[in-house]
């Protein structure tokens, strides 16, 4: 009897079916979906690749700079990369529309190139320090910090030994 009552109640309440695929559906803000990479914020520390269980993130050096590639088809969307990324250069969006045809399998990537900078001292190529990171490290910036940011690690060390010049 309890079952029959349940069914009649169901009939009275009407379908609870989600409108999708014919209409909108519920998508929570925190949903871990398609990954976006912002090269402007990347410090090149590669922590994201280090914590990635699916081997979904690769870095390679190209002429344009340090290239980040993420392949969604082996990404578990666990979010550890975002969690451990100091500057949140890597971010999981709530976009879950990832279903694709087989011919697009290898094109399901997110890519970005971290442009190299030239050292203000020696002109050597380096990964530019990210302002977001320095903002995290130092409460306020000053000319000395700003200057150090324009140096490659070697020159920065030398500058440190000299005791700074502003």
């Amino acid at each position: 009897m309890n079952m029959l009552m349940l069914l009649l109640r169901n009939l009275a309440r009407g379908p609870s079916t989600d409108a999708f695929p014919f209409g909108d559906t519920f998508t929570p803000e925190r949903l871990r979906g398609r990954i976006r990479f912002d090269p402007e914020l990347c410090t090149g520390c590669r922590m994201c690749a280090h914590v990635c269980a699916g081997d979904a993130i690769h870095f390679d050096e190209t002429d344009e700079g340090l290239r980040f590639t993420l392949w969604h088809n082996t990404c578990t969307f666990c979010g550890l990369c975002e969690h451990y990324c100091q500057t949140k250069a890597i971010h999981l969006t709530d976009d879950w529309h990832l279903a694709h045809l087989q011919q697009d399998k290898y094109a399901m990537i997110e890519q970005g190139v971290v442009a190299p900078a030239a050292c203000a001292e020696c002109g050597g190529r380096m990964t530019a320090p990210v302002p977001a990171l320095t903002a995290m490290a130092y409460r306020a910036s000053n000319r000395r910090i700003e200057h150090l940011q324009t140096l490659c690690p070697d020159c920065r060390r030398k500058a440190g030994v000299k005791g700074g010049r502003s």
Binding site: P21, L31, N73, F77, W96, L98, A99, L101, Q102
Partner: peptide, 21 residues
């Protein structure tokens, strides 16, 4: 294989989208 639905696991709506494809 004809259609891929990535996710770990994909949400039901994504599976429906894959089925529609």
């Amino acid at each position: 294989v004809d259609v891929n639905v990535p996710g770990c696991p994909p949400r039901p709506q994504a599976i429906i989208e894959g089925i529609a494809k």
